[in-house]
Design a binder for these strands. Sequence first.
RNA 1: GACCCCGUAGCUCAGCCGGAUAGAGCAACUGCCUUCUAAGCAGUAGGUCGCAGGUUCGAAUCCUGCCGGGGUCGCCA
Length: 601
Amino acid sequence: MNIFQIFHDRIAEILGQITASGRLPALDPARFVVEPPKDAAMGDLAANAAMVFAKDAKPHFPNPRQLAAEIATALAQSEGVAEVEVAGPGFINIRLKPTVYRDVLRGVLCAPDDFGRHAPSASDGTGHSRTGTLSGKVNVEYVSANPTGPMHVGHGRGAVFGDALANLLEFSGCEVTREYYINDAGAQVDVLARSAYLRYREALGEAITIPEGLYPGDYLKGAGEQIAKAHGRALLGKEEREWLAPVRDIAIAAMMDLIRDDLQALGITHEVFFSERTLHEKVNGVCEIDRQIEELRAAGLVYEGRLPPPKGQLPEDWEDREQTLFRSSDWGDDVDRPLKKSDGSNTYFAADIAYHKNKIDRGYTTLVDIWGADHGGYVKRMTAAVAALSNQKVDLDVKLCQLVKLMREGEPVKMSKRSGDFVTLREVVDEVGVDAVRFMMLYRKNEAPLEFDLAKVLEQSKDNAVFYVQYAHARGRSALRQALAAFPDLDVSATALSRAPLDLLEDEGEIGLARVIAQYPRLIEAAAAAHEPHRVAFYLYELASYFHAHWNRGKDRPQLRFVNPLERKLTGARVALVVCLTSVLASGLKLLGVSAPEEMR
RNA sequence: GACCCCGUAGCUCAGCCGGAUAGAGCAACUGCCUUCUAAGCAGUAGGUCGCAGGUUCGAAUCCUGCCGGGGUCGCCA
């Protein structure tokens, strides 16, 4: 039950009636919003419809306040409305009867897991929000780290972000596929293979030194042993071109096992692992990438031509030559982009075109790619490509995650050079736990840089948002346990709680809590439409803070406490409220992939 | 040189397709509590929203140009 949605619909209906009376043109209801007012003293809901439509209404309503007044009058008759007033330049402020919040709470109690959820319904029109489509098949591609070593902290951010976004979209009614694009083609995996080959020789007893340019990490020892196990001494002394492919296969598989373990430690699983190499594999002499290029050429999107040299620092080996170009500048990119390297092989972009075409062909209506910020320069061409490939039918939203700066007590953590590596994601997860990592990485906009303080996230204090939110949940669960201790026969089943005398919830703090709870569905919809899971984290913090503040008032005023051994009915009503609260906290935490503990001890 | 992201309180950051007096936490200052409702509570103070224009009834939000920080810039993925 989304009260904001309900009143948006009602106001749209009233506007429709005014239109029918000939005093307004037909208007798009998606243009106005119903939102919580700036200040709770102004009421429960605020609508800006009269101001948004001021221009259209001018002939019959010279100023927005007059239109607002007419809407307000009609709205005052509406169910659940206590009072409507026009304020400021033309806001319509609605004060609700307390029964509305009781209905909301009962809704939560009856179906705690579904509050805020949008069923994957068909075309009832409600799947479309004002900012994005919240229905249909969505592919979220995230992590997609090169299979050349364990994940580092930066990868972790994209991983957590993508996973939470996927959860959020699923909860909002989309059919979501979580996908990992394995960059298992190209020079980097050859370097990996050469590095693994050294480890293979090492596993067979040779003393090795790892030259500059190869991966020195210890994590390749396992791969070396696997190669030794599979091939014995057979690969020793052979030419690289003989051992490269088999070694590479084993090394990549080993690295993917490593990465999958890292992801598992973060609670992340993908449904699809898509191998870039499959796009390069030739069938009857033609690979998927070439096939796509030729299709695009036939469609006039690919041509042979020259590119002006890049301004600024000119690459040393720049040579002006004719090459195969994708007409991305026709679709919003700055210049056309090359698809072939000088040696005739395909560029990464060419492979990515084929890959995204594959996703389009699998029937997704929205594609979301999660990339590191260093790939920012790549966004336009990919967006252009998807637009061209799908004839603008499919949306691509690329979300860039900024880098993570690891701190400890405010001091930057030194990157360990020990294994030729940085601080791995696994080390961080092992040190502070998956909940802290996930929550903190989501407690920031994706495009803002993130400082992650290893000491702070373990603090058990209000300064630490993870703790604060989880504590609110634990505290709520504890209240429920206390109620059961005071009234052992108290029925806390969903049906019983939904029949609790909620009209006894009269305190401003209780009503305020209900008000924030009622905002959850709206928050979810907005966060999902904007592809911004961080909003969920901030909402949870706010909800927790309302709860803690109310709880603290009970210290001085015991009559406000949730459990009162002398007041069975009142305790029942407050327990119902607390169950609503913990349900919403648990629901939001689940979307973020963070646990909702029963206690913090 | 071009493109992308960022610039909001001393610090770290929110601010939901333009909306009412720009918010929170930390730090600072002032009180309160010394608990059994568990790792404090309440309050005060603090901002030319980088700068300058523009769009409009209205701009932190949209547009343009600067300034500052970061990133990227055929044949790395």
